[in-house]
């Protein structure tokens, strides 16, 4: 291995997920015409990639499948220090579930950067919160994967990478050494992202550092992407209704309120 090639797939998240429009037929989120931002946790992934580049050299590429207005947030990643961005945009990719999305991302990376060393991704997205993508991309590419990385130290000479990861629910820090290439996701509370340099972002725009590719250039099988390549369907959506509750509300003197509450809790048998 001569040089590290680090690919960071990022997602255009919808900033205000409580005020979105859903497609009445597919029940999918309508992303067209909605202002997009980078999924916040993906910035931690970009940060880890840049820290690796700062220490060990190489090239960092961000890649995203998004509507055409996704170009701007890819330029922002270049503002952070990324070398180039790839925007994959085509109607044929629309309506994809996580399997079809991961297909498009994985096959595009394999085609554009066949010699990639690392793929680094955010822990999950804040609008869908599935955390599926890193494992699914790994499955298409048939390479190992590790979630929740806090640090990674590649060794360009022998082609290995030492990965530290944190399992939050077990309070456990684990260490692995893997041969590259490998995919990792980045623990969301690690690698706080650096600022975006406006100059660099403008430079990205002026020099066209974000390439926009449609499926004409990528040549992916239309049966494997978008709605057609998605095994899951959203059969039905409904408003999340609160469970029935007593909803007794006290307004007035706090001391009286505390007394009222305690009496009720004793009556309920939850306080003895």
């Amino acid at each position: 291995m001569d040089e590290l090639t680090i690919v960071v797939p990022v997602k255009a998240a919808v900033p205000n997920i409580t005020a979105v429009r859903l497609d009445p037929n597919t029940h999918n989120l309508v992303r067209e015409g909605v202002p997009l931002m980078i999924n916040p946790y993906d910035r931690n992934a970009v940060e880890l990639a840049l820290r690796i580049k700062d220490r060990f050299g190489g090239k960092v590429i961000t890649i995203s499948m998004a509507p055409p207005n996704g170009k701007d947030f890819l330029e922002s990643t270049i503002g952070m220090g990324v070398d180039e961005g790839i925007l994959i945009t085509d109607r044929v990719f629309a309506g994809a579930d996580t399997l079809a999305t991961s297909h498009a991302i994985a096959k595009s990376i394999a085609k554009l950067y066949p010699n990639f060393s690392l793929i680094i991704m955010g822990e999950e997205t804040t609008d869908s919160t599935t955390a599926h993508m890193p494992a699914q991309v790994a499955s298409w590419l048939e390479i190992p994967f590790v979630y929740y990385a806090t640090d990674a130290e590649p060794n360009i000479k022998d082609g290995t990478v030492k990965i530290t990861r944190y399992l939050e629910d077990e309070g456990l820090l684990e260490e692995f050494i893997y041969n590259m290439p490998i995919i990792m996701s980045v623990y969301r509370n690690s690698n706080p992202p650096r600022d975006i340099s406006l100059n660099r972002k403008i430079m990205a725009k002026v020099n066209g550092l974000v390439k926009v590719l449609t499926n004409k250039e990528l040549g992916l099988n239309p049966d494997c992407v978008g709605l057609k390549g998605s095994p899951t369907i959203v059969a039905k959506i409904e408003d999340a209704k609160p469970l029935p509750r007593k909803k007794q509300i006290f307004q007035g003197d706090p001391k009286e309120g505390a007394k009222w509450l305690l009496e009720n809790l004793v009556k309920e048998g939850v306080i003895r």
């Binding site: 609160p242 469970l243 509750r245 007593k246 909803k247 007794q248 509300i249 006290f250 307004q251 007035g252 706090p254 309120g257 505390a258 009222w260 509450l261 009720n264 809790l265 309920e268």
Partner: peptide, 9 residues
């Protein structure tokens, strides 16, 4: 909206 017992205060 989710409480059995609520105190405004």
């Amino acid at each position: 909206n989710y409480v059995d017992y609520g105190i405004v205060g």
